[in-house]
């Protein structure tokens, strides 16, 4: 067990070393507004979900609403604006702050099935049909359109 951990640790370091030497290998993280996190970016990259899960339980079960970590406060600084429209981009857009790294790491984000993915107050446009399950659900709308047409024929 320890051996495996040690190996993983070495691999991990090796990867981060490579990533540091070749910054262009990694995702291009959009710059944020506001004060930097006092804990540092490395900490946030690693633990943002722990912070969010912890504080969401505080809010939901205890009714404590002035927590530090919330999706709302993420988007206060981390909204990515579309230069053409001047609007923040939703999770459907691959430039969305969360997606940049999550697409790169191939880790699916479940948050935006229920939460909005833009700052409060912005009126998010209607969902694109092909992105209903999230952009990474790998399902093609065309397949389903055909399926639905086939079924409609049957009925």
């Amino acid at each position: 067990m320890r051996l495996i951990l040690a190996i993983l640790l070495v691999v991990n370091f090796a990867i981060s070393a490579v990533a540091e030497e070749h910054p262009d290998y990694g995702p291009e993280i959009p710059s944020a507004t506001g004060e930097p996190h006092p804990q540092g970016n490395e900490f946030m990259r690693k633990f943002h979900m722990d912070l969010l899960s912890h504080d969401r339980d505080l809010t939901m079960y205890e009714g404590i609403r002035d927590t530090d970590a919330s999706l709302k406060s993420c988007f206060d600084c981390h909204a990515v604006t579309d230069q053409a429209t001047g609007n923040p981009v939703t999770y459907e857009d691959e430039r969305n702050f969360c997606r940049v790294c999550h697409d790169y790491a191939a880790v699916r984000v479940d948050c935006f099935m229920c939460h909005r993915s833009t700052p409060e107050g912005f009126n998010e446009p209607a969902l694109l049909k092909s992105r209903l399950l999230g952009p990474d659900d790998g399902l093609d709308d065309a397949l389903f359109t055909e399926l639905a047409a086939f079924v409609a024929n049957l009925e």
Binding site: L132, L133, D137, L139, F144, L147, A148
Partner: peptide, 11 residues
């Protein structure tokens, strides 16, 4: 399987 994917996709 297809039906499940369809229902899960559109709700």
């Amino acid at each position: 399987g297809l039906s499940v994917l369809y229902v899960e996709h559109y709700g």
